[in-house]
Amino acid sequence: MQPVAMANRPFAIRHYDADTLRNALRRMLLIRRFEEAAEDSYMRGLVHGTMHLSIGQEASAVGACLPLDDTDMITSTHRGHGHCIAKGADVARMFAEFFGKETGYCRGRGGSMHIADVSKGNLGANGIVGGGLPIAVGAALTAKRLGTGAVVVCFFGDGANNEGAFHESLNMAAIWKLPVLFVCENNHYGMSMAMDRASAVAAVADRAAAYAMPGVRVDGNDLSAVAEACHDAVARARVGDGPSLIECVTYRWRGHSKSDRNRYRTKEEIETWVARDPVRRFAALLMDHGLLNATDFDVLERSVADEISAGVAFAKSSPNPDPVLLTRDVYTDLAA
């Protein structure tokens, strides 16, 4: 295969080394397999409640986290498994949380909708649409006030761009020039209501103009495009130029939650988007640039499969929380 001229190569290829890129692919795959296994466990009755799957959106989660390190922070959404894995969480403890076990990230107190590995800078998934936006701004305020150099990526969906919290947060981040990236994962539907019916603007990125910050719209299924936009925004944030709004246009293959009967979209539409599978696209990109071959991919798949099955086994064998400790962590135990 003829090497593509450097300048014409995609950002990711230009900017990251092979290990980083293979690792990014592995994370995307891990997200995919994790959610499939979670769904399978749900079907088997091992998971309580519901879950919101992000299958099909892996590129935006991994791409946005690619420019970050462990001191940087994210706030996540109810569809947050991908963000959590992208920010470095261990799938075994995530499964344990899904299964309501004491070994889970939230010790079985949070479940799918509040999952987070705080030690990796994840401030938590959030069950409230728009709930994480002001928190992200607050975290960015801390970073600026304490001079930590940290940047905050605030994930939210297209549904949140009509919440008051979105507008208040973008405004405050802008007036105080805070190091925060507002990363909208526009998967076209806020539950059943399509973005074009719900929002007065065609693109969420257009909202940026109202808050005097850059607004960028990228193909959210293209890891490189996401990483590039975020890389630029992180750079701006780190030097004190303030926030950015990045809209990743993507699609969730599954329904909103497990109760979704998919009455608001067509099979054809779903199939169109499945054809744009971000994981396959990124794998193909790496192969195109000679950074991955079919054997490597098989090895990757197997290692991911092993990690998933080990994680499920860990979760299954983990102890349930003790009801005696029901009220632990409602307040900080000052005696402890």
């Binding site: 706030t75 401030l123 002001p134 928190i135 992200a136 701004v137 975290a139 960015a140 305020l141």
Partner: peptide
């Protein structure tokens, strides 16, 4: 108020 309170929450969560 919503945003302001939330910024305070996020700031408290992260060290202020």
């Amino acid at each position: 108020e919503l945003g302001g309170a939330g910024v305070a929450v996020g700031a408290a969560l992260t060290g202020l």
